[in-house]
Design a protein around this nucleic acid. Structure first.
Lengths: 248, 248
DNA sequence: CCAAGAAAACTGATCATACCAGTTGACCAG
DNA sequence: CTGGTCAACTGGTATGATCAGTTTTCTTGG
């Protein structure tokens, strides 16, 4: 039996979810006016405070623009949204996930990963190296437990991002991790090869231990490119099938 | 005469700014309890609604964790913050900016840029190529007007990110652009060489026009590495001077 | 004395209502 | 056509009450 954490949603969060979903996947055009707060909260059956909290959050996410006295307008999320939108974009209303967004994430990962590893090799402090060693040890002990390997993989990348001394990488990694956590269970089998490639993970760690940035970058690139191309290949086939299906 | 847009801040935004500044640059430890809403709004002299709006936004930014019934706790922004934190991290309380954060941003830009250009060369549609051509034309007409070249440069990168067909790059670019807009005026002279390197910009555009991804990547890497290393060099000198100063 | 359970105190969540403040657009005088 | 006035609309602030969870404290039965 696997127990799942009960999610309790506040009203403002429910409103936020509904509106952002409507903006991202619905039929709201950029520039379109949102109903006035008083109308909106009446239509949604919630008090104005909850409604305002949601609207403020939407504005922070770059999905709407609020102007005192004027009306609230929908923005083009592609031009003003932040990286945290990835999670919402990835999942489609029908329950599946967007292949285009998944590809985007994989490409970004492949572009950043090697540089993160290289910087980590150059800058990591002894304490972090120790933690990294523990993760590698745990990885070699995890055997073929793919779920466990995914969790350790996240920790692996968290450490690399931290060790890179690059705060932008750390923050981007935070966002990507949050997105990954939501989708990793459907990717488990697809990532099998990458997850089981213990040799690469070990080689990256060892390159970092000895401060060999070039080697760290090179091995990381190999690991990610192999995993990425494999997943992209699969996604492309999947996409084709999906298109064919949607044409019927 | 240069007119600057008047900024009007709402109460909730002021509270948000103050608290996030306190968390990021102040002395609040992760795990520390925030005062209860009722105390907080009294201490700040604002109503509870404004206070709650700010707290909800802080939670969305990954700076605090709110729990119904329990108390609100400060999180470790390095482990849970999103990329939009960059802007706040970049600027220090004393008015200057953090060299470490600036370096991070430059490194990220250097890692992403070449891949963005390559993907754009592979995927850009005719319409986007047309817009890109206009920007390049405008750049060649801008002469040595560095301010104008900065603006066109932003547009240049916006187009590349959009043309890459990679939504993650677009969203990351949005965040980086927002940060850049806040600091670009102090970087103008420092970026002189990069801004005036019209040859590289033109070469990137032309590589994109003919779908030559490898060339686009290569030229972009050259442009960014040159600009980055120059700025990093300067920042390193600056950092040294700053350290020396802080020791006295 | 201790552990289980009830009660109290505390915290965030929701609600209703009133009023303040900025924007917009229609209208009118010059 | 310009500038000003005013009414209607929109978001912002304020207050006070109540609901709903969590944490702490205290009681109680063993």
């Amino acid at each position: 039996m696997t127990l799942k954490k009960v999610v309790r949603k506040s009203l403002s969060e429910a409103v936020f979810d509904q509106l952002s979903e409507e903006i991202v996947h619905g039929n709201m055009e950029p520039g379109q006016r949102l109903p006035a707060e008083r109308e909106l909260c009446e239509a949604l059956g919630v008090n104005r405070g909850a409604c305002r909290e949601a609207l403020q959050r939407l504005a922070q996410a770059g999905l709407i623009s609020i102007q005192h006295g004027g009306s609230t307008k929908v923005l083009d999320y592609r031009a003003s949204g932040g990286l945290d939108l990835l999670g919402r974009l990835l999942f489609r209303p029908d329950g599946g996930f967007s292949i285009q967004v998944a590809r985007s994430i994989l490409e970004m990962r492949a572009a950043l990963g090697p540089d993160i590893a290289a910087l980590c090799a150059r800058r990591a402090k002894p304490e972090l190296k120790g933690q990294l060693r523990e993760v590698v040890t745990a990885l070699s002990a995890a055997g073929e437990d793919l779920n466990q390997r995914q969790l350790l993989g996240m920790r692996f990348w968290d450490l690399l991002a931290r060790g890179s001394g690059n705060i932008a990488y750390q923050l981007a990694n935070n966002t990507l991790r949050k997105t990954y956590e939501k989708i990793r269970h459907v990717l488990t089998e697809l990532m099998r090869d990458e997850l089981l490639d213990h040799k690469s993970h070990q080689a990256i760690a060892e390159a970092i231990f000895r401060g060999d940035d070039l080697s760290a970058k090179h091995v990381t690139r190999g690991l990610l490119e192999k995993g990425t191309s494999r997943m992209l290949q699969f996604l492309a086939r999947f996409e084709k099938a999906q298109n064919k299906e949607s044409k019927t």
